[in-house]
């Protein structure tokens, strides 16, 4: 609708001359002169990615990490999949062998940072407050604090959420998805966005398998369906089963 005269034809123009002819099939008087309080509209073509700013900062982070010879992995899973517990065991195993650093995100509390402290790796917590994901800027701001000369691997433990963190590039080398056996083998199909982007999935809490009807083969099949060539680890950070393969992999990465 034309905001100036209220007619339905948007393909016409108005001039400021009160005696002008209307070209849209009706006429009405203008009793006013120059004191228009309405606006002209101009359409601008923008064609810009909404997350362009985050992507720019992520690219900056990526460059910084490459210059400092650090491989960064962005760990993403639902809350309670066992990201922090796996990281505890991982830092213990890599201590003195591969220099590690951790940036961990949660909405509130520094509980995770406390759990991960004292294992030979600098740890910083980001409390995201209302946000359900980490963004490139806040992660990059901590690099200088957390990364030392000997750091080879940076673990970024994202906020527990399978959906939102997927959309925000942090400048990591790649994403790692985690999925616990209690969550069901169809999770990759239910949340394909993460699993289609992450080249690696860790299936956690395999010590619980005897108590569950979890079908590991179906899970692997579902992962491959969403992401052909997906690299899958099966492990239990609690029992230590399968942990060796994961540690070997990280040692090669670092």
């Amino acid at each position: 609708m034309c905001d100036e005269c209220g007619c339905g034809d948007v393909d016409h123009t108005h001039t400021n001359d009160p005696s002008h002819d209307h070209d849209h099939g009706h006429s009405h008087g203008h009793s006013h002169g120059h004191s228009h309080d309405h606006d002209e509209k101009v359409v601008l073509s923008v064609r810009e990615k909404v997350l362009a700013r985050n992507e720019e900062l992520a690219a900056k982070n990526r460059l910084w990490l490459a210059e400092h010879n650090v491989t960064a992995v962005n760990l993403i899973s639902a809350p309670g999949t066992g990201k922090t517990f796996l990281l505890e065991r991982t830092l213990e195993r890599l201590q003195g062998r591969v220099g590690c650093a951790v940036i961990t995100g949660d909405q509130q509390t520094d509980n995770d940072a406390k759990r991960l402290a004292g294992k030979g790796a600098p740890v910083r917590q980001i409390e995201t407050q209302s946000a359900c994901h980490l963004e490139a800027q806040r992660v990059g701001d901590l690099f200088e604090e957390v990364i030392q000369d000997e750091t080879r691997i940076l673990f970024i433990e994202n906020v527990g959420n399978l959906v939102c963190p997927t959309a925000f590039d942090l400048g990591e080398n790649f994403k790692i998805a985690l999925l616990s056996v209690t969550e069901g083998e169809d999770k990759p199909l239910k949340y394909p966005a993460l699993f289609s982007l992450a080249p690696v999935t860790i299936v956690t809490k395999t010590d619980l398998l005897p108590h569950l009807d979890f079908d590991m083969e179906a899970c692997r099949e579902n992962l491959r369906k969403v992401h052909p060539g997906m690299f899958v680890f099966e492990l239990s950070a609690k029992s230590g089963d399968g942990l060796d393969g994961w540690i070997d992999y990280l040692e090669k990465l670092g």
Partner: peptide
């Protein structure tokens, strides 16, 4: 086949913006 390349569907874009220009400035 799952061996595919995504052509469209990942967009998250600002396409166009219709700005209001105060007419007073124009004449």
């Amino acid at each position: 086949s799952t061996d595919i390349a995504i052509v469209t569907g990942r967009e998250l874009m600002i396409d166009t913006i219709e700005v209001k220009q105060d007419e007073e400035k124009n004449h």
